[in-house]
C-alpha cells in the first residue's frame, strides 16, 4: 500500500467523521501489505452528536455503535406515526421492529443520507399499508367482527368526553381507504407539509392533493353526521382543546 493510498483512506475517513471499512488493503507493490485485512476505524466523535448523514454513513460502514444511536434518535418518530395512524397507544412494538428491520435492508439505497427522517417515514407508511391491509383481511375473514384496535385512552387523557371524541374520529378513519387514511393522518394529525405527504406516500403532489381532498371531504361528511361528535364539538371553545 502506498502512502497516497493511506492518505486517501484517511481523507475519506476524516471527512466523514465516521468509520470506514476498508476491505482490501492489498497493493501490488507493497510486500508488507496486510492481505485481506479489514480495518474499522471508529473516530473519537460522539455519534449521538453527529448529523443524520454521518449516522447513516456510520451504519453503512459497520460502526457497531451506530444502530443504537439511530434507534434512540428516531424510534419515537416511528412510534408516534404508527400510533396516530392506527389509533392505538400500545402494542405497536412489532410494527416498529418491522420498520427498523426494513430500514436496515433499505438503508444502502438511501441516496441522500440527510433525508433519513423522510426515508424512515416512507418505510413506516409502507409498513402501515401492509398492516391496515392485514387488519382489513382479518376483519373480512371474520365476517365483519371488529378487531379490537380501539385506542386505550384511559391512561392518556383525563377527559372522558375527549377520549370518546377521539374514539369516534378513529371510527371515522376506519371508514377510509388505507391510502386516504394514512394521507389524512400525516397531513392533519402529524402536521406534515403536502410535499412531505407526497414523498412519504411515494405519490406525485397532484395525486397526494386529490387523495387528501377526498379523505378530508369524507371525514367532514361523517363528522357532521355523528350526533355524539356534534354534541361534543358544539360545546368546545374557539381556543380549545
Amino acid at each position: 500500500m502506498s502512502a497516497s493510498d493511506v492518505a486517501s483512506f484517511l481523507s475519506r475517513f476524516l471527512a466523514g467523521r465516521v468509520p470506514l471499512l476498508l476491505e482490501d488493503m492489498r497493493s501490488e507493490t507493497d510486500t508488507q501489505a496486510r492481505k485481506g485485512a479489514k480495518i474499522l476505524v471508529l473516530p473519537a466523535a460522539d455519534l449521538s452528536t453527529i448529523d443524520d448523514a454521518g449516522l447513516v454513513r456510520a451504519v453503512l460502514h459497520g460502526d457497531p455503535r451506530a444502530p443504537r444511536v439511530l434507534w434512540d434518535r428516531h424510534a419515537r418518530l416511528v412510534y408516534r406515526i404508527l400510533r396516530r395512524s392506527l389509533g392505538q397507544q400500545n402494542d405497536v412494538e412489532d410494527l416498529v421492529q418491522e420498520v427498523f428491520l426494513s430500514l436496515w435492508k433499505r438503508l444502502p439505497t438511501l441516496r441522500d443520507p440527510r433525508a433519513l427522517p423522510a426515508f424512515l417515514v416512507t418505510i413506516t407508511t409502507l409498513t402501515l399499508r401492509h398492516e391496515l391491509r392485514r387488519r382489513w383481511v382479518r376483519r373480512y375473514m371474520t365476517l365483519g367482527a371488529k378487531e379490537d384496535i380501539g385506542p386505550d385512552l384511559q391512561a392518556v387523557h383525563p377527559d372522558p368526553e375527549a377520549r370518546q371524541a377521539v374514539s369516534r374520529l378513529y371510527a371515522i378513519l376506519d371508514r377510509l381507504g388505507r391510502e386516504e387514511r394514512i394521507a389524512f393522518v400525516l397531513r392533519y394529525i402529524e402536521g406534515m407539509e403536502l410535499t412531505e405527504v407526497a414523498t412519504a406516500l411515494e405519490l406525485s403532489l397532484a395525486t397526494a392533493k386529490r387523495r387528501l381532498a377526498h379523505a378530508r371531504a369524507r371525514v367532514d361528511y361523517h363528522i357532521a353526521r355523528d350526533a355524539g361528535l356534534a354534541a361534543y364539538l358544539s360545546g368546545i371553545d374557539e381556543e380549545s382543546p
Binding site: Y79, R80, E93, H157, L169, Y170, L229
Partner: peptide, 23 residues
C-alpha cells in the same frame, strides 16, 4: 375546519411519542 382542528389536536395529545419502559 375548527372541528377537525380540534379533533386532530386531541389525537395528537392522546397519541404521543412517549415511550414506556417496555418500549
Amino acid at each position: 375546519d375548527r372541528a377537525l382542528r380540534h379533533l386532530c389536536e386531541l389525537a395528537r395529545a392522546v397519541f404521543t411519542e412517549d415511550l414506556s419502559p417496555r418500549e
